[in-house]
Design a protein around this nucleic acid. Structure first.
Lengths: 215, 215
DNA sequence: TAGATTGTTAATCGATTAACAATC
DNA sequence: TAGATTGTTAATCGATTAACAATC
């Protein structure tokens, strides 16, 4: 679709635009200018226009952007016009939390199966999705079209499972294990490192406290 | 401690350094050069040295860095040498998952209370931490020193609760609700937007598929 | 037409990388 | 001492912001 490589920074911001446009849409806002959106989002209007123009001209001079149209277009850019089949590896608390999160389904991410090593969980269903034993993983993936695997397993198990998933042809891994997965570069990995996020918060809290005592 | 403002990009990377150093420490590696660490982490050695030198000279020419020392120092920078008391607002799946995650405790984040609106959950304990009703929040925070509040509640409820927490003097919010909290700038907010993370993954997956069909 | 606001080019700013003198 | 590797300065690169002509 677009020519030049889109920078990581732009891609990082796209879902946030999508979220704001979704909220505007909910509030029946029909049009919005980059200036007004920039004020709401606390970014510059320039950045919004630059970002969007990576993908095409979605606005109109003198008018701004049609909220619904822009929302739909960004949705397409993010691939949200398609459905993706998801499996969750690891039916611990986090895996179950993901399985219970109905919002993902609304956006087209369909949970097809949940896998764990714990025999106690075998056969239990979460919102209609069955928990399978991990040794059924290979057959399951071969018999179903799976686009995305969410990894909510201990860090020591994650690299081996990820490697197996890659071998089975899964091209997208949503990794919650606190480790970097080294996979072929045609396998996309999106990390959610909660511990690192919490550390950033504690860094900022500490920096705040120090700046208070200094003055 | 340090003079000039540390850039956001550096702070983002610090926990990852900490994680790698922790792993090296577990593997009894005593010293490491920026070059070797850069190869493991897939960043440039220059960046590692620049990043670290924001906080001080932790290395030694001709030798490199002492792993244990550097690990400890980065821990201090991140505020991990102190303990923080945490409350979790929202005892849904995600809140319970956080409450069950023992790793946070190990790093000094102590969960002191969990709050919810659901009367069915009243009095139930998760790993020894009691679930309270949300109307007890104010008194609880006044009677306990709470440093961090994790918000795992629906997006519509998040802004009001966050505002209340700020008013009660809590200076750090770990926000899992898919909304931006507008709080006084002396309140630190760290967002974990899972839906946005998943969208980035689907963007990358889509981009990958398109690049495959093009060639 | 006049006003508004985009799309886009140019200028600025900041972050990353390269280079190397200092020094262990 | 010679070799290695840091800490730090300088060069490069990329991302952000500003400006404005195009145009609705």
């Amino acid at each position: 679709m677009q020519d030049k490589e889109i920078s990581l920074a732009v891609i990082q911001r796209l879902p946030r635009y999508y979220r704001y446009l979704g909220e505007l849409l909910e509030n029946d806002v029909v049009r919005i200018s980059s200036k007004e959106l920039s004020e709401r989002m606390k970014v510059t209007a320039s950045q919004i226009r630059q970002d969007l123009n990576n993908f095409g001209g979605f606005g109109q001079q003198g008018y701004g952007y049609n909220v619904e149209y822009l929302y739909t277009e960004i949705g397409k850019i993010l691939g949200l016009d398609k459905c993706y089949n998801v499996i969750i590896i690891g039916a611990g608390n986090l895996g179950q939390a993901l399985a219970n999160y109905t919002d993902f389904e609304r956006r087209g991410f369909i949970i097809k199966g949940i896998f764990d090593v714990n025999p106690r969980l075998e056969g239990i269903s979460i919102r209609g999705t069955e928990i399978h034993m991990i040794d059924e993983l290979e057959e399951f993936v071969k018999n179903n079209t799976i686009h995305i695997a969410a990894l909510t397993i201990p860090k020591l198990k994650a690299p081996a499972i990820a490697k197996e998933l890659a071998k089975l042809g899964i091209k997208a891994i949503w990794n919650f294990a606190p480790i970097d997965l080294n996979l072929p570069k045609d396998v996309m990995v999106e990390n959610v490192h909660l511990a690192e996020s919490l550390m950033r918060l504690s860094y900022n809290l500490k920096a705040l406290e120090e700046s208070n005592t200094e003055e």
